[in-house]
């Protein structure tokens, strides 16, 4: 196992470097001179020249990349054009709020979807199974930014029971009723896709386990059905947990639309503001951090999964 962990960690290094190269290249995808994107549009020629030398933009690309990488590894992501504050500070301030949304959404999605998927997987082909499969398809088909708007219309505009946007404070306080109210709609909206995906995975995992010989043996031994199910679910759990972990990573990087709908002060909302302001340093830094989190989560899930079941180790 130890050797495997080391191998997987080493294999993640080139991927992380590749990700950093893509993020570095983002600045060069922008139309026009990269310096222009680092400066407000009304900057004069002298400032442009000074900044070019300051950032070493007159040097060859590979050198620029290495220098940029060196700065990034020391936590220097540059400064936001919009606010003038260091990009890293901005990211750290908003990241926690996105972690909160993603964690709650995945936990809720898992609890709902695992039950739904188990119901469906135990009796495939029944009308219950069809309903669950329908819910799963709906979950992945709904554009969640639209669902968010619809929920706001229902619960904020018509019923006036929940706030439409924002967070009520800078940091989340689980003892405050107001804070909890603000979390409800974004979390529900964000959990739709994971519900669909986890329910689907659970359904096929449970259906597969229920067909295995040990289940037949347990039943033949006269074990009550709920205890048979307990044994079966234990075996169906690992792939479902893996999918749940991957969904957490996806939500961390994919909450941009939902956060924008709810003006939730997370990294996704910051990213969408950065795009509107053409704030390239924030764009670059946020994407790099979110992608690195995604890589780390995926790696963790892989290691966790292969420690549970050595058969699925990758080469």
């Amino acid at each position: 196992m130890f050797g495997y962990v080391v191998r997987r960690l080493l294999a993640a290094i080139p991927i992380a470097l590749g990700v950093s190269m893509v993020c570095f290249a983002l600045v060069y995808l922008a139309p026009g001179d990269p310096v222009q994107t680092l400066l407000p549009p009304d900057a004069d020629a002298e400032t442009v020249e000074r900044l070019k030398r300051l950032y070493g933009l007159d040097r060859p690309l590979p050198i620029q990349y290495l220098e940029w990488l060196w700065r990034v590894m020391q936590g220097d992501f540059g400064k936001s054009i919009a606010t003038g504050r260091p990009v890293l500070d901005e990211i750290l301030r908003s990241l926690g709020n996105t972690v909160l949304l993603a964690t709650l959404s995945v936990l809720i999605a898992f609890s709902v979807a695992f039950i739904l998927g188990t119901i469906a997987g135990r009796r495939t082909g029944t009308w219950l199974d069809r309903i669950v499969t329908g819910i799963a398809v709906l979950g992945v088909s709904i554009p969640n930014y639209w669902l968010g708007i619809v929920l706001v219309i229902i619960f904020s505009v018509e019923l006036m029971v929940l706030p439409a946007s924002g967070m009520a404070g800078d940091t989340f306080d689980p003892t405050s009723w107001e804070h909890i109210q603000h979390v409800v709609l974004p979390v529900f909206t964000l959990s739709m896709i994971p519900v669909g995906i986890i329910a689907r995975t659970t359904r096929s995992a449970v259906a597969e386990v229920m067909n295995q010989e040990f289940v037949v043996t347990l039943r033949a031994n006269g074990l009550p059905e709920w205890r048979v199910l307990r044994h079966a679910l234990k075996n169906a759990l690992p792939p479902v947990l893996a999918v749940m972990g991957l969904q957490f990573g996806t939500l961390m990087g994919g909450s941009i639309l939902v956060e924008t709908v709810f003006s939730w002060p997370g990294s996704g909302f910051m990213l969408s503001k950065a795009i509107l302001n053409r704030d390239v340093p924030v764009l670059q830094g946020t994407i790099l951090v979110l992608a690195m989190i995604f890589v780390t989560v995926n790696l963790t899930v892989d290691l966790f999964q292969s420690s549970l079941d050595p058969r699925i180790r990758r080469g």
Binding site: A16, L26, L29, A30, G253, G254, I256, L283, I287, F294
Partner: peptide, 16 residues
């Protein structure tokens, strides 16, 4: 290694 939404937003956002 990028979540799909993030990659789409990153590339089209950077390209303007």
């Amino acid at each position: 290694a990028f979540p799909s939404v993030l990659l789409a937003v990153a590339i089209s956002g950077a390209m303007g």
